[in-house]
């Protein structure tokens, strides 16, 4: 009985590791709401961030430099040429499933393209856009 209890606890904690895009959006939205009362994620603002040309780094002026103009399509790394799978959840069910992975790539790509860390609000908007775009 005790083993069964431990086992089901383990199963629960394993399941808790794999998150859904909704849960990840919610984590960022909660963080954003703490800084900005009444914040609610917007796929439209997420799309604007995705398409904006920051032009700080000539090898990667925008998110679209590697992820292409359509998040539903596979992209190509602008320096190495390696193919990058589609970002949109509708095209790639593996996206936005691991909070640590999502955070790592926001960290890296925002620093290099936007020139600073993205805010929790920007991340919530971006995840909203990637979850909703069809």
């Amino acid at each position: 009985m005790k083993t069964l209890a431990t086992l089901s606890l383990m199963l629960i904690s394993i399941a808790a590791h794999a998150e859904t895009p909704q849960q990840i959006r919610q984590i960022y939205a909660t963080e954003a709401a703490a800084q900005q009362t009444g914040f609610s994620p917007s796929a439209k603002r997420g799309e604007t961030l995705f398409r904006q040309r920051f032009a700080l780094n000539d090898k990667m002026p925008a998110c679209t430099s590697c992820h292409t103009d359509s998040p539903l399509n596979a992209g190509q790394h602008s320096v190495t040429g390696k193919s990058v799978k589609a970002l949109a959840v509708a095209a790639n069910a593996e996206r936005f499933a691991d909070p640590a992975k999502v955070e790592k790539w926001f960290g890296r790509n925002c620093k290099e393209v936007v020139g600073r860390a993205c805010t929790p609000a920007e991340k919530a908007d971006f995840v909203a856009y990637m979850s909703e775009v069809r």
Binding site: Q76, V79, T80, G81, K82, S83
Partner: peptide, 11 residues
Amino acid sequence: PRVKSAANCEA
């Protein structure tokens, strides 16, 4: 452009 870099072995 389809190769892009010698490091892109998979091309």
